[in-house]
Design a protein around this nucleic acid. Structure first.
Lengths: 209, 209
DNA sequence: GGTCTAACATACTGGTTGGTATGTTTTCAT
DNA sequence: ATGAAAACATACCAACCAGTATGTTAGACC
């Protein structure tokens, strides 16, 4: 439907940018739901209506499609929601507590069952394919680095206690966040998510001066 | 080689218990290395020398083999190393700190790359198969319950601070432990493991009175 | 020692998958 | 207008995989 309207507005039958985007988005969703190795290209083609020839015109192989999902969807989404707000705040501890609270409140049961796209892919692919591992590790590195520098700035503004080791705390925070989401994903239980979330919130409290 | 010796000692050409054990052990290793869905039964048969007929005599299908690995290998191993020692100690905080330190010291690079078998399977299978999810969740539940009751006992012995909420702390501890191992697995970097480990150790310190 | 069944062994199948070969149709610069 | 290249479309393939059908053999029990 919308395609037809767009075709008329656009005045063209082909829109390679849109085709690529459709593929990326469908791939992201299906990878998120079923995992990269389990998802079949045919399923993505069925979902998007794109043909195999078109897919292999835009991506040389399945891995390349996955890489693009990591770089063009997962990475920017995570930055926007979890990294940038902390970097922009003067009080990273409070900012993180806020983020965790809103994440916990807005999380639906379906999202809970699917878990974190970044963590899912890491756990599935890091040992199997170096291309995935490096790209995912870059994201994690950026995340840890962001929290670390935010903690440093917070210390200067007297919002973070002096005894806090910024590097290990940042690593631990990212790890426990993913750990909590993973635990709730397996339990499929909001109560577990809230318990874990409370655990992080309490921990964050100990970082204040 | 050993099989032949055993055959002579045993005086029999067939040993169904041993055959089952061989299958379980090989399945565990290969699942740990490649994930459940990626591992092929043929690979396990090649590895063990067992034939397909024998495998399907012992297990009705692939999932059943996986379930048996969870119940008969992963669950008891985890209990022995991570749950029982904490339950037996009067000071769960110190006991956990000890466990984390020895785990961090004895971990090889190969183990680091492969991650935690329990967490790997959870992340891979919980959304895909309810049979796996329930079995893995039972293990997590036992783990959380163990730490919780250990924290309660520790409080009575004045080894755990009064402000500690046992339930959420237990959930958070298990989640962050798995989170740390997962983070180090993706990074393939001992330094990251140590940073995360230091984070947990510092956190555990805040639980003391 | 004969019989029955548990414990294996072999060969095969139907379905799926990532990838390719080859052809057609737009689009756009000249 | 036209040639070239980008953007798609179709048909096909070899490999693999879980599972099955069918047969064989060892060993326990009477």
């Amino acid at each position: 439907m919308l395609d037809l309207i767009h075709d008329k507005l656009c005045g063209c039958k082909r829109d390679p940018v849109k085709t690529r985007e459709k593929l990326l988005l469908s791939a992201f969703e299906q990878i998120h739901e079923h995992g990269f190795q389990t998802v079949s290209l045919d399923a993505i083609l069925r979902d998007t209506g794109v043909t195999k020839g078109a897919l292999y015109h835009h991506f040389p192989n399945k891995n390349a499609l996955g890489y693009a999902v990591v770089e063009e969807i997962i990475s920017p989404t995570l930055s926007a929601f979890w990294i940038d707000p902390v970097l922009e705040s003067d009080d990273p501890v409070v900012a993180l507590q806020q983020l965790i609270r809103t994440a916990g409140e807005t999380m639906t049961m379906e999202e809970l069952k699917m878990g974190c796209p970044l963590n899912n892919l890491s756990q599935e692919m890091s040992a199997a394919d170096e291309g995935f591992r490096k790209r995912l590790d870059e994201i994690y590195d950026k995340w840890r680095g962001g929290i670390r520098s935010a903690l440093e700035r917070g210390k200067k503004h007297n919002k973070v206690a002096g005894h806090v080791d910024e590097t290990s705390t940042a690593a631990f925070l990212v790890a426990s966040l993913e750990g909590c989401i993973g635990m709730a994903k397996n339990a499929q239980d909001m109560k577990i998510l809230q318990q874990c979330g409370q655990g992080i919130l309490d921990y964050l409290e100990t970082l204040k001066p």
